[in-house]
Write a protein that binds this DNA or RNA. Sequence first.
DNA 1: TGCGATATTAACAGATCTGTCACCTACGTA
DNA 2: TACGTAGGTGACAGATCTGTTAATATCGCA
Lengths: 191, 191
Amino acid sequence: MSRNKRAELVERSLWLFYRNGFHATGMDLVAKETGVSKTSIYKHFRTKEELILAALQLRDTNFRSWLFDRMETLADTPKAQMLAIFDAIEEWFLEDSFQGCMFIKASAEYQAEDHAINQQSMAHKQLLADHFANLASAAGYVDPETLANRLMVLKEGAIVLAAMSHSAKPAQDARAIAQVLLETTARKQDA
Amino acid sequence: MSRNKRAELVERSLWLFYRNGFHATGMDLVAKETGVSKTSIYKHFRTKEELILAALQLRDTNFRSWLFDRMETLADTPKAQMLAIFDAIEEWFLEDSFQGCMFIKASAEYQAEDHAINQQSMAHKQLLADHFANLASAAGYVDPETLANRLMVLKEGAIVLAAMSHSAKPAQDARAIAQVLLETTARKQDA
DNA sequence: TGCGATATTAACAGATCTGTCACCTACGTA
DNA sequence: TACGTAGGTGACAGATCTGTTAATATCGCA
C-alpha cells in the first residue's frame, strides 16, 4: 500500500468514526467505504483499535494545525489570539461536517483511565492547553497554566453544547466569558 | 413485574450503560447483571433504545434532584447557589463512580439531531439551564437566560475535562470563572 | 518475459448483537 | 383444586462483530 493510499484509508476511517461513532462503525463498513479490502487493512493495522489510534493521531495533527493557523489569522497579539479561539470554533460549529469533538467522543466510548484511546485523547487536550499557556505567558499573565486550563473549560463546554444542540451559539457565550476572564486575570505589566 | 423490580431493572441498566457505554453494553449482559431474563426485559421494553430512554429519564430525575438539593444545602442566596453548582459537581467528580455526564455520552453515541436519545439528552440540559435561569432571575440579573447558558458552558466544560483527566480540578477552574462572571454581569439593582 | 511483493476477493471462524419463540414454573384468586 | 397471568429458561434466527485463511490478481522491476 502506497503512503498515499494508507493516508487516504486513515483519513476516510477518521470521518466514518467521527460521524458514526467508534463501536457503531464496523470494519466491514470501513472496508466498503474506503475501498480498501479488510484483509489489506488488517495487514497494516493489527486491530481496529490501532486504526482508531491512527485516525485520532491524524485528527490531532489536522485540528491543532487548523485551529492555531486560524487563531493567528484572526488576531495579532497573544491576548487577542486567545480570544480568537472562540471565533475559530464558531466557524467550526457552522460547518456542515461538525459533529462535536472527536476526542471527547473517543474517550466517552473508551473511558478507562489506562486505555490507549483515552490517553491519546487526553494528550491532544494537553497539547492544546500547552499552546494556550504559551500564549498566556507571551501576553504577560502571571499564571499562564491556570489561565490555559480555564480557557480549555470554556472551549470544551462550548463544543459539547454546540454538538448537542446543533447550534453555534455556545461559541459566543464562551467568547464573552473569555473576554471577561482575560480582562480580570492578573498580568505582570498591565497594559 | 412489580413496580419495584422494574425500577431496579432500570436503575441497574443505568449503571451498566453509564460505566460501559451504550453500544458496548449488550442486552445479554443487562439480563445477567440485573437478574432479569432477557425475555422479561423485552416484555416491558420493546427495544434496547426504549430501555436506554428509561434509564436516561431516571438519570435526569435523580441528577437534577441531587444537584438542586446540594446547591440549596451549600448556599443560601440565589447568587451563591449559582456558584455552588461548582462545589456540588466537584463533590461528584470525587466520587469513585464518576464517569462523566451520561447525557453527553449518550448524545455522543446517538448524535443524529432527530434521534430520541439525543433529544432527551438535550431536554435534560435545557431543564438545568431553566433552573439556573430562575436563580439568575431571582438574583436580579438583567439577562438571566444568557447567564444561565454561560453557566452551562462552564459546567459542561468542567465535566468533560474531569472525566477525561480523571481529576476534580476542572471544577475549581470553572468555579473561579463563574465567580468572575457573576461579579461582572449586569444586575438590576447592584448590591 | 518472469520474479517477488503486495492487494484483492470470498469465504470462513467464533463470538456477540438484538430480538423472538415455545415451554415451564410460581402464585394469587376463585 | 383449577385457572389465568406474569416471569423464567434456554434455544434459536438472522445479522453483525473482529479477525483470519487460501487462492487469485496486479504491479513494479529486472
